[in-house]
Design a protein around this nucleic acid. Structure first.
Length: 571
DNA sequence: GCCGTTTTCGGCCCGACTGTTTTCAGTCG
């Protein structure tokens, strides 16, 4: 049983305990453990065999036992027993926003509702509004949420969400007295997918700002609108929350609204031990009741006795303890990047000429860009047969003569075939500056074969980079079955660089993989898989992922200047 | 159920918004 499945069990258990009216702190313990397990950089199974389960924050004696049971038997007695205590389908009702434990139990016991369809029918028949403490409006609300839930796609990749946000921010820019408009929440933490969009700002008149927000043309529905915050649904079904505070609370509010939830809970517990109380408005001294406001997050963390914690690593793991010790590393930034190691031109399935891509790379301040068009095996992607690759090499040489300040590395994105062999013979690979290898087909293979296949490719001395290692596509294609721990170890052994693809639909490797690979000493590269010059911008997502994996500049090989990077490739 | 530089027992984050209510419960983030 994998970490995601284990986390799911504990989340369900927390829901069931809540339905049961159990001690709220107990169910919070389950939720915390679920979160912890979800973010583990290694499989819980490995921790069980190493006896290290108890080192995971939020995992104590009882939960460790439950995890062990799940890992070894694939089932959990306590969970099965708990499930049996409740009518079928109650947990499903909790999925609907606006339905909490009380309402779910009411709907289930009074009306016998098991599914969303039955719920919809009951609302339309007026049965829900007639329940105690319900009413027309409450029932209507549930119906709207239910229908929105049906329409709504899953979480969307961060790349798409940022487009929506950029537009919103541009539209709100001119509202008088509205300042400091900033994306917060999971967007600011660079989570790979976004469930809803959080924006915050400060204003002379919060009401006026909220009014401007809910009146935007793309707002399809206003879910809530008060004096300091509002929630709307915009075209496309995405929920956007806006929170407005006074100018001098900006730092505290940004911190509060960036989350994550678990990070904030941990911070508040720490504050409590310090005799302080945290809220979005600032820090209150519990003894004097005095509120201290913060204009910046830096000042806020300083007051808490902590090193500044970058948003990308505020996931409620051990970042607060690390900040207390002052051991949060300086994370890589987009401005550290000296080159892109994965770009396509119109020679294969890219849109632009090699020269256009090179000039765009130069304009970004890069010193080099690796041209990695597809190999012949990628027929659909107009992959290059050896002869065309040689012709391309000639053009690259000519361009390198002509252009100043940017070096084009001749390379290829070579297919890893089903047997682990490569789509170009070794003598051709040997003539390239850089070889990026990737799986593009036969993705349904069982884990052992896929793992062997990738490792075999990594063992080829000409292969420099393993691209998008898990082959997932957000939000639909699941990662291939592959033993990531083995891939990371092979990367360390063979010196193969692991790609962190910034392409929004890939983001591959993902955060916890990056964390583990780095921990084991593997080298990583943030790349874009550019197919037209605008895609070079995807580097921000690659860097965002790397930061979520706690990467410093020295962990990312393409932060090295050209000469140093070429020397590294040779070694 | 977890956890401890006050504690191994007694705590456990905090505020906003809505709807059905006459003072608050439920839900959310």
């Amino acid at each position: 049983m994998n970490n995601k499945e284990i986390a799911r069990v504990f989340e369900d258990m927390a829901d069931l305990l809540e339905l049961k009216g159990e001690n709220p702190f107990k169910l919070r313990a389950y939720q915390k453990a679920a979160r912890s397990i979800e973010y583990l950089p290694v499989e819980a199974e490995q921790l069980v065999s190493e006896g290290k389960l108890r080192e995971v924050p939020g995992v104590g004696e009882a939960i460790a036992k439950k995890i062990t049971e799940l890992v070894t038997t694939g089932k959990l007695g306590a969970y099965e027993k708990l499930k049996a205590e409740f009518p079928e389908g109650v947990i499903a009702l909790l999925e609907v926003p606006g339905i909490g434990p009380k309402t779910a139990m009411l709907l289930s016991t009074e009306l016998g509702i098991k599914t969303m369809d039955e719920l919809e029918a009951a609302i339309i028949q007026g049965k829900v509004a007639a329940l105690p403490r319900m009413g027309e409006k409450a029932a209507d609300n549930i119906l709207r949420h239910l229908q929105a839930l049906r329409r709504k796609d899953q979480r969307i990749p961060i790349g798409e969400a940022l487009l929506v946000v950029d537009k919103l921010l541009a539209q709100l820019k001119d509202v008088p007295g509205l300042r400091n408009l900033t994306p917060a929440g999971s967007l600011r933490r660079f989570k790979e997918t976004i469930g809803d969009i959080d924006i915050m700002g400060t204003a002379d008149d919060a009401r006026e700002a909220i009014q401007a927000f809910v009146s935007l043309p793309q707002v399809r529905e206003v879910l809530a609108s008060g004096t300091t915050k509002a929630s709307v649904v915009v075209a496309g079904g995405l929920q956007v929350d806006l929170r407005i505070v006074e100018h001098d609370s900006f730092g505290s509010t940004l911190q509060y609204f960036t989350g994550s939830k678990q990070h904030n809970i941990n911070l508040r517990e720490r504050a409590h031990r310090m005799g302080l109380k945290l809220s979005e408005y600032g820090i209150t001294d519990l003894r004097t009741e005095k509120l201290e406001k913060f204009a910046t997050e830096e000042a806020f963390y300083r007051r808490m006795g902590l090193q500044f914690i970058p948003p990308e690593i505020r996931e409620g793991q051990d970042e607060i303890a690390r900040a207390e010790q002052g051991t949060i590393p300086g994370l890589v930034e987009t401005s550290d990047i000296k080159g892109d190691l994965h770009v396509h031109s119109r020679w294969s399935d890219g849109r632009d000429s090699i020269e256009a891509v090179a000039l765009a790379a130069k304009a970004r301040g890069y010193q080099y860009v690796a041209l990695t068009d597809h190999s012949a095996g990628r027929g659909i992607a107009r992959g290059l047969p050896p002869e065309r690759l040689r012709q391309q090499g000639a053009e690259v040489r000519a361009l390198n003569e002509k252009l100043n300040g940017i070096r084009i590395l001749s390379g290829a994105e070579v297919d890893i075939r089903a047997d682990g062999s490569l789509d170009f013979p070794d003598d051709i690979l040997a003539g390239l500056d850089i070889v990026v290898a990737a799986v593009h087909s036969g993705m349904d293979e069982p884990q052992e074969r896929m793992t062997r296949r990738m490792i075999k490719a990594m063992e080829n001395p000409h292969v420099d980079v393993l691209a998008h290692p898990t082959c997932r596509l957000l939000p639909d294609r699941e990662p291939v079955a592959v033993d990531m721990e083995a891939i990371f170890q092979a990367a360390v052994r063979t010196g193969t660089i692991l790609e962190v693809s910034g392409m929004p639909s890939r983001l591959d490797l993902k955060d916890i993989h990056i964390y583990r690979a780095r921990e084991l000493g593997a080298k990583l590269a943030t790349s874009t898989d550019t197919h037209s010059v605008e895609h070079l911008e995807f580097m921000r997502f690659g860097v965002g992922m790397a930061r979520r994996g706690w990467c410093r500049p020295q962990d990312i090989v393409n932060t090295r200047p050209l000469k140093e990077f070429l020397a590294y490739l040779k070694s």
